[in-house]
Each structure stands twice: as C-alpha cells, then as structure tokens.
C-alpha cells in the first residue's frame, strides 16, 4: 500500500520518465536527500531525488559540475549513505536501509564499477586486475583468472593479458576496468566519467564496448558523464541541477555519433 505522499512521488517519477520506453524498473529512488556538513557549512547535495532507472538500458546522468551527479551515483551504488527517510531500491533491495556487512555483500554480488581514473592495482596484470571482484567473492584463483581471461579476450584485450597497467594506454586500462566491472556478472554497472581521461577515439571505443558488452536485458548501466561526445550512447539521459533531476529524456541508443547540434547535446546544455 502506498500512502498519499508516496503515491504523489510515484506520479512525479512517472511524469519525468518519457512515455513509451518504460521497462522493468531496476532502480527506484524516492525522496533521496544527501546533506554534507553541519550548521553553516551544510551543503545539500541531493534534494529529494525521485527517479526510476530501467533494466536493459544504458542511462546517462549529466549536468553541471557540483550538481550532485557523483553523489547520486555513489548513493545508488551503495558506497554512500543518503539521509534518513529516502528509498534507494536496487533490483528490489533497499540499499538505503542496509548496514555494514549486508551492504558490502550486496555491492560485491550486484554492482560493477568503472572509474574515471581506472583505479587498477598497479602491481597486478590486466588479467589479475580483471579477476579481483571474483577473488573478493571467494572464487578460487585459477577459476577467477580463467573467467577474467575470457572477458578480457571478448573486449579485445586477449593479447595484453599479462601486461601491467603502466604498460597499457588509457583506453586499454579502461577496457581492463570494464572487464573488471563485468567479470562477476553484476546486475548494475556504475561508471563515473569513464571517458574523461581518454581521447575522442578511445572514448568512443570504450563506450561502444560498454554498450555492446554491458547492456543486457537483466542489467542496468548508469553512467555519469560530462563528455557530450558520448551522450548518443545513452538509451535514457537524465539532467541534474542543484541536487535534483530536472529532466529525463530517452532515445534509442544508436551508438552513431550525432551531428553537431544534436538534440542530446542541446538537452545537456539546457
């Protein structure tokens, strides 16, 4: 049973979603607030975010610097607690109400991460880096490495399995990071500015891989990006401003690079 205020929020979230593309909801956010600091130093990073993210889609979160994109991504990924009262439902589990070990286990089983600076372990080879989530999950090392090899090979990194991160280009390192995010078959993949440290060509290649390898019917991919050159890879795009989702638009992810002045770039600039 939904109370009146929850029902109102459901309606708002529905209104923000463009009709016609709603599928099964993967992530449901309701009244998500996040405050940093206290007293005069208080910063409201998220202000009552209501949003649904669907399965089988690559959703992109855009907006100006400091608008709360990364904070929202962190809350969704369960690595940052939101203020009390909000609902962060990821594949049916309320992450906001999970504590300590339960949250850690949930992340281990369900979430894959791709970071702006890759965050690969410098002492491990590409294959070992990609196997880390499986090792964390307790999979025996030989099996974890074998699985990592498969994923890396599928991402075109079969010839660099034994390379250290320092021996790889930025694009190759990000591919290893994507392999690491995919290796344990998580249901949600969160990416923070995955193309920010890459040149145009590498960025396009990485996003193409992301679309081809990561997007599946039972998975959701959430990408925070400033890079307007990769917006066209998104199935849906939400614009944030001042801690709120102010606009949600959808398109069929074509992976075709748009002409200048495309509607998505316009939307991002709006």
């Amino acid at each position: 049973m939904l109370d009146s205020s929850t029902a109102e929020r459901e309606m708002v979230a529905g209104v923000l979603a463009e009709p016609g593309l709603e599928g099964e909801v993967a992530i449901r956010l309701r009244d998500v607030n996040k405050t940093f600091g206290t007293g005069e130093q208080t910063v409201l990073a998220l202000r009552g975010v209501d949003w649904d993210i669907y399965r089988g889609q690559l959703t992109m979160l855009v907006g100006p610097s400091g608008c709360g994109k990364t904070t929202l991504l962190s809350v969704v990924a369960g690595i940052l607690d939101c203020d009390r009262g909000g609902v962060v439902e990821v594949f049916g589990s309320d992450v906001a109400r999970m504590r300590g070990g339960a949250k850690t286990r949930f992340r281990m089983d369900n979430i894959g991460f791709v970071f702006q600076q890759y965050n690969l372990l410098p002492a491990l080879t590409a294959m070992e880096n990609a196997s880390v989530p499986l090792i964390i999950a307790g999979v025996p090392r030989p099996r974890a490495l074998e699985r990592a090899r498969e994923v890396l090979t599928s991402l075109g990194m079969g010839n660099r399995l034994g390379s250290l991160p320092s021996q790889l280009s930025g694009g190759q390192q990000q591919r290893v990071a994507i392999a690491r995010a995919l290796v344990h078959e998580p249901r949600l993949i969160v990416c923070d500015e995955p193309t920010a440290a890459l040149d145009h060509e590498s960025g396009q290649a990485v996003m193409r891989l992301m679309r081809d390898a990561a997007v599946k019917s039972d998975r959701s991919v959430l990408v925070v990006s400033h890079d307007s050159r990769v917006f066209h890879f998104a199935d849906r795009m939400a614009r944030m401003d001042d801690g709120r989702i102010v606009q949600v638009r959808s398109q069929v992810g074509s992976a075709q690079e748009p002409e200048a002045g495309d509607v998505w770039e316009a939307a991002a600039r709006a």
Partner: peptide, 13 residues
C-alpha cells in the same frame, strides 16, 4: 588509499 577504496567499493570488507 584509492586502491583500497576501490576494493572496498567492490565489496571487500
């Protein structure tokens, strides 16, 4: 620290 942070994010207790 960032590597440890990444490991924590990935579910290492």
């Amino acid at each position: 620290l960032k590597q440890f942070g990444a490991l924590k994010a990935m579910g290492l207790s």
